[in-house]
Amino acid sequence: MRPCQVWFTAESPKHLKLAKNWVVSLNSKRVPLNLFAVRYDRSSGPGGQNVNKVNSKCTIALHNFSRCSWFPLEVRKQLSEKKSRYYASSSDTIVIQSSESRSRETNREYCIEKFVKHIKEICFFPGEADEHTVKKWHGIKEKAHERRIQEKKLQSNKKRLRNKKDLW
């Protein structure tokens, strides 16, 4: 039997439901930009002289992510435990880059949108199971238990017969 993940058992169902609602209602407009350190650099790739003159690539970083109280605890745990591609565990920082546009502001918006989309993709919260499904899995569990007990009895009988010295 596989053990449950820590973040499912450690928190109450109320906290999980609140975190799930937070993720569902999350959009790029609700993200407070003052949490992030924004840096602009020169982009690579085609673009002629604009690439050499303008710092349009945007990099946003959220330092001390595990202690950022704006994110629910369950979301922080999932992003750090599931090896998010934007999370650097050595520095406890979320780093997102965008150089898709020639505009600084557009690239910053793309970074935030990437982050919101990534949170919605990586965070998972279990739903409620209906009564029919619970009964079905309970029956499967019972059958597996009975089959296991029967196999143990057969194995026990086999070993008992091997140990009998005088069969006559």
Rank of each mutant, 00 (worst) to 15 (best):
R2Y: 09
K120F: 05
E81W: 15
V38W: 07
R85K: 14
D41H: 08
R108Q: 14
H145E: 09
R67D: 12
L62R: 11
H132Q: 15
H63W: 03
L26F: 04
N21A: 14
A37V: 09
S69T: 15
W70E: 06
S101P: 03
K77V: 07
I149P: 00
K135E: 08
A61Y: 00
G127Q: 13
E11F: 15
T93C: 13
R67C: 05
N163K: 12
K165Q: 07
N34R: 08
Q155S: 13
H138K: 15
D166R: 02
A10Q: 11
E109G: 07
D41N: 11
R147C: 03
K83F: 09
Y87Q: 03
I96W: 04
S84F: 13
T133E: 11
N163E: 04
V23F: 11
F115T: 00
E146A: 11
L35Q: 07
S43D: 12
Y40G: 00
F115W: 07
R85A: 03
R42P: 00
L161I: 02
K29H: 07
K135Q: 06
I94S: 04
A144R: 10
V116F: 11
S84L: 08
K29L: 07
V23S: 06
S98K: 08
L167V: 14
L26W: 02
K53M: 07
C58A: 15
D166S: 01
R76L: 13
Q49Y: 00
K57M: 12
P126F: 12
A19K: 10
S90K: 15
A61T: 12
F71A: 02
N34M: 01
W168S: 05
S101I: 09
I140T: 11
P46M: 00
C4D: 04
W137Q: 13
S89T: 03
G47H: 08
F71Y: 05
R147F: 03
R160Q: 10
L26Y: 04
W168G: 01
D92Y: 08
W7K: 01
H145L: 12
L16V: 02
V51H: 01
L73G: 05
S156A: 10
T106I: 15
L35P: 05
S103K: 09
K83W: 04
L16F: 08
Q150W: 01
S69K: 14
I94Y: 04
K159N: 14
I60N: 04
E74R: 04
